[in-house]
Design a protein around this nucleic acid. Structure first.
Lengths: 151, 151
DNA sequence: ATTGGTATTGGAAACCACTTCCAATAAGAG
DNA sequence: CTCTTATTGGAAGTGGTTTCCAATACCAAT
């Protein structure tokens, strides 16, 4: 999480800046992984021992709706979170997930090629359906090398 | 579900063709919606009253791994299913989901424009990571007109 | 600084989508 | 028709996520 703009952002929406929120953003800003709520909870204990799992869920959901974090679902039964494109330090990327073992690969290939299409689609959809679009996701699904062998 | 090819497909993988499986495919083939497992379960009662929710889950997961159905996650806490591109009668489409109320819009705009990119990316990823790619998904996230008003 | 209104928090309990277990059933190969 | 074994269904379990509510702590106004 670069900068402190998020504080202003919170206040602007009538939200308060609190210890847990600060700590959660710090955790997300210090990793490249796709953390589950429980993962975040564990790592937050350090900076904010009183923070409950419950608060982590609420905060992540709030931040997802504000567009600060991306909530990802890869089919393994839990949501995963990462700082969203504009707020994180990870390069723009997408995901490749194994249908069987649910393993995940981040890829950054062909990202430039998608720009035009995404921009055009985003514009078209927002004027056609009235949505205010915050983010997009491209997901490829298949079988990883291991799972291919195992039938 | 056009044709009966899926029977052969099942036998080919050492799976049996059963009442519940047949009924579930019929349900999926008769709608344009993104049904949850429970939705499918309810609609299956008609053709196959003995079919349990449990079997619906197992069957949908199996079909997802076979590539017959697409398992979709829109962030509302349950998976949704539709016949996959090659097996369904719905045109190739993608989704637009509201981050707040989780409502879903199907769109078919700019689908042609994506073909090249998808083909190229699919090829690149499968040779780089060894995945056997079965499907792809593009998801736009944002706020629907209603939720924009409500802050 | 102090105060007051209210958003936020934390813990426990509830919820619910989904999975596991296992004995009974039935598909389909021989 | 028979035998093997995949599949089923019901009940019980699992675990991620939400709800409830009293206590806490932001922060705007004083």
């Amino acid at each position: 999480m670069q900068g402190q703009g998020w504080r202003r952002r919170f206040h602007g929406c009538g939200h308060r800046v609190t210890g847990p929120r600060e700590a959660i953003l710090t955790v997300l800003g210090s990793t490249d992984e796709h953390l589950s709520a429980r993962d975040v909870f564990l790592r937050v204990q350090d900076a904010c021992p009183s923070c409950g799992l419950n608060t982590v869920y609420r905060t992540l959901e709030l931040m997802a709706q504000m567009g600060l974090v991306s909530k990802l679902e890869f089919g393994d039964g839990q949501s995963r979170y990462e700082l969203s494109r504009e707020h994180g330090s990870k390069p723009h990327h997408h995901h490749l997930v194994c249908l069987r073992c649910k393993s995940i690969v981040d890829y950054t290939d062909f990202i430039k090629d998608e720009l035009d299409l995404i921009r055009k689609t985003e514009k078209g959809l927002s004027s056609k359906f009235g949505f205010k679009i915050a983010d997009h996701e491209i997901l490829f699904k298949g079988l990883c090398p291991q799972c291919q062998k195992q039938g």
